[in-house]
Simulated assay, not measured.
Amino acid sequence: MSNENNNQDQQAMADEWAAALEEQTADAGFDADSLLNDVQAQSASAAQGVELDELKDDSIPVSDPKLDVILDIPVTLTMEVGGTEIAIRNLLQLSQGSVIELDRVAGEPLDVKVNGTLIAHGEVVVVNDRYGIRLTDVISPQERIRRLK
C-alpha cells in the first residue's frame, strides 16, 4: 500500500512539473501541442526514406559490463548559490539574522555539481512549493575530464 501511495505521489509530482513546463512554453508565445502537430503533419507529408550514419560516442560503451557495475552507485548532486571566505573570528560572531555576502551576482546561474565536480549551470524554479533547477548549460564530458587534469 505504501509503495502504491509513493507511486501516486511521484505521478502527481511529475504531472505538476509537466504543467509547469507547459506553462513555460505558453509564456514563450507558442502552443507546444500545436507546434508538435504541425511538425508531425509536415514530416508525414514530406517524409522520405534516408539512410543515416549511426552516431556513436566510442568513449562511453553502451553495453560495457564494467560500466553496468557502477550505474546504480549513488552520487551527491548539489546546487551552489555562491561562496565566500571569512575569518573564524567573523564566523563565530554570526547569529540568527546575520547576512553573509556571497561572491555571485544576483541572477547569475547556479553551479550544479556531482560529488563536487561542476557538470552544469542552471536557474532555480519553483513548482508547488518545491525548488527545482532548470539546466541552462551542461558541460560536455570531454570538458569535465579536461578540468580534472
Rank of each mutant, 00 (worst) to 15 (best):
M1R: 09
N6R: 09
Q8L: 08
D9R: 06
D9P: 03
Q10T: 10
M13E: 13
A14S: 10
A14H: 09
A14W: 03
D15M: 13
D15R: 05
A18C: 10
A20F: 05
L21N: 02
L21S: 02
E22R: 06
E22A: 13
E22T: 08
E22F: 05
Q24S: 12
T25K: 03
T25M: 10
A26R: 02
A26N: 10
A28T: 04
G29R: 00
G29S: 07
F30Y: 10
D31C: 02
D31Q: 00
D31V: 08
A32D: 09
A32Y: 11
A32R: 05
S34D: 09
S34M: 12
S34L: 12
V39G: 06
V39C: 07
Q40H: 14
A41Q: 10
S43F: 12
S43T: 11
A44Y: 13
E51T: 12
D53R: 01
K56Q: 12
K56I: 14
D57V: 08
D57K: 05
D58Y: 07
D58Q: 05
I60N: 01
I60V: 13
S63Q: 07
D64R: 03
P65V: 03
P65C: 03
K66N: 15
D68F: 08
D68R: 03
V69Q: 09
I70F: 13
I70Y: 11
D72R: 06
D72F: 13
I73P: 01
P74N: 12
P74R: 05
V75Q: 07
V75L: 12
V75H: 07
T76C: 06
L77S: 07
T78E: 14
M79T: 14
E80L: 11
G82Q: 01
T84G: 04
E85D: 15
I88G: 04
I88L: 14
I88H: 04
N90H: 11
L92Y: 04
Q93H: 12
Q93N: 13
Q93A: 15
L94S: 03
S95C: 10
S95W: 04
S98V: 12
S98Q: 07
V99T: 14
V99Q: 06
L102K: 01
V105P: 01
V105L: 10
V105Q: 08
G107V: 11
G107R: 02
D111V: 05
D111E: 12
D111M: 04
D111K: 00
V112T: 03
K113F: 12
L118Y: 07
L118S: 02
L118P: 00
I119A: 05
G122I: 04
V125F: 06
N128Q: 10
I133E: 00
I133Q: 01
I133R: 00
R134T: 15
L135S: 03
T136R: 02
V138K: 01
V138E: 02
S140P: 02
Q142K: 06
E143F: 05
E143W: 06
R144W: 14
R144I: 15
I145G: 09
R146I: 15
R146W: 10
K149M: 12
K149H: 14
